[in-house]
């Protein structure tokens, strides 16, 4: 398996990467960890002419606390996140999520920014970033902007990023009480259903991935929640549930409720 030919450019700064994106447009792809992109390129399902490697850009792989928020560089790997003391202490649900992704080797390479930008409907992070009300910080020709996560996911493999924008970091509020529950697909170990629940007082925020072509906040659950996990019954309210060989609509809907219930009870 060998990809079609392409040019490879290692960007040394965000502005260089943005300029390259602007210059090459649709022919270019950003390479971070590459764990979704490279297999697709090897199967020649994806054939960019230019790969812009952003993994060497300094300052994009740190995890810091700024003004009460946890700021995670887009190039942080799942392993970085899973083992960060700061994340484990103040944003534990994200560490739980990172640990649930792929395997050791994938976690050593795959990045948070790459996963979010790729917007695979079965990826794990989307549930958690939604439940956490995170903010995606992106930079493009017009400069830097913050995208509320509620606006970020727009469809299958589709996000609010402009063609010339890359994610530089993701900002999270601190989360004390959060839980991620995943039912994985037995071959790929992607999420058939992934549910993230963030609780504060009597309120919950519930992010769900794997169920619809776009990850979503389960407002039905959030509205019905009054301390009882029975609210999980609303996990797929007003959602067009996906179907595949591993889980049809009925079973996937059921799993969404079960995983939501477990996350609410945790």
């Amino acid at each position: 398996m060998i990809p079609a030919k392409f040019d490879y450019i290692k960007a040394s700064s965000v502005s260089e990467a943005v300029d390259l994106l602007d210059k090459h447009g649709f022919d270019a792809k950003i390479l971070s960890g590459g764990h979704s992109l490279i297999p697709a390129m090897k199967l020649r399902l994806n054939r960019p002419e230019v790969l812009i490697d952003i993994s060497g850009i300094s300052g994009m792989d740190s995890i810091t606390e700024e003004g009460g928020e946890i700021v995670i560089g887009a190039n942080c790997t799942h392993h970085d996140i899973a083992t960060s003391k700061l994340v484990n202490d103040d944003l534990n649900i994200l560490a739980q999520t990172a640990k649930a992704i792929g395997d050791i080797q994938v976690r050593n390479r795959g990045t948070l920014g790459g996963s979010l930008a790729h917007a695979d409907p079965a990826a794990d992070y989307p549930a958690t970033v939604l439940a956490c009300d995170a903010t995606v910080v992106a930079e493009g020709k017009k400069g830097q902007r913050s995208i509320p996560i509620s606006d970020f996911f727009q469809g299958i493999f589709t996000t609010a990023l402009e063609d010339d924008e890359i994610i530089t970091s993701i900002r999270f509020p601190k989360v004390k009480n959060g839980n991620y529950q995943k039912f994985f697909q037995s071959a790929s170990r992607f999420a058939v259903v992934g549910v993230a629940v963030v609780k504060s007082g009597n309120e919950v925020k519930v992010g769900i991935t794997g169920v619809a072509d776009t990850p979503y906040r389960a407002k039905g659950v959030e509205n019905a929640y009054n301390g009882s996990a029975d609210a999980a019954d609303h996990a797929v309210d007003n959602v067009e549930v996906m179907s595949d060989h591993f889980a049809d609509v009925e079973y996937r809907s059921h799993l969404a409720k079960v995983m939501t219930k477990r996350a609410l009870e945790a």
Partner: peptide, 15 residues
């Protein structure tokens, strides 16, 4: 120092 799947890495990424 980290285990990686070398078939999903371009050699240029390991430069």
């Amino acid at each position: 120092g980290a285990a990686v799947k070398s078939c999903t890495l371009l050699a240029v990424q390991a430069d």
